[in-house]
Amino acid sequence: MPEIDLSAANTLSPHELARYARQIGPGVLTIEGQARLKAARVLVTRAGGVGGPAAQALVMAGVGRVVLAHGGALHTADLNRQVLGGEDLVGQGRAVPFARRLQKLNRFVTVEAIDHEPDQQEALRLAREVDLILSCAPTFAERLCLNRAAVAAGVPLIDAAQWGLTATLMVLVPGHTACLRCVYPEDPPFEESFPVLGAISAAVGSLAALEAIKLLSGCGEVLAGRLWLIDAYQGRNTQVQLQARADCPECGAAPPARATDTANPVGT
């Protein structure tokens, strides 16, 4: 699991324990795991059909600092999959109002907004400031930019994506699993206007948050190094064990690992 500075969290207050009472216990989180969430920092980019529900789940669960990055305005055609904003925000930027809405959900966490997509330099700086990156971008270029930053900083990257009624979810831990460039050695073609239904994007966003919560809290078995394919159109659910590439230009030479618990690197 990622190395998280628990000193920043101290202990959970009685109010926090009351708030999270239903998610602390057998089969869910331990108190220590909840404290680890409180001390954790996560970058979510972007805040669309996948990233919005993911960020919402992280905030509700008590992840201490959630940084939401998204540039550009909300369009009418986006509304079929937004959980953080509605028609009143069409034409406006998303990150700030979405972060404001998220902040109202949980006073025990901090939500920050970045009103643009980070470039490579900013992505690397942000990666070094967080414990995990949730990649929910609509382009492979952005996803691979985040992957490069995650590998360089040694922080896990959770890649959640969808097309039509299909979703893929990957939990990639530098130094322990394949990275996104191992999976996509060739740049896949860009498709600007992909088909999407809100139910599938929200589903994979929530599952991405779930993997993040398990990884950060150290509770539950993480899907590290696996691709989870959810083909809701065909009713198919498949997992694939991913293989790292020795010749990967991003992680193949000497992948860094910020995680310190090498015997149990992914919190299983």
Partner: peptide, 29 residues
Amino acid sequence: THAGTVGRCVDRPLRDGDELLLIAPVAGG
């Protein structure tokens, strides 16, 4: 088991009944 991509695939023998999964990458967010 991941075998790479169509462009960079590690060849391997197949067995009767194997399932060959072809996933065109998705990036919708």
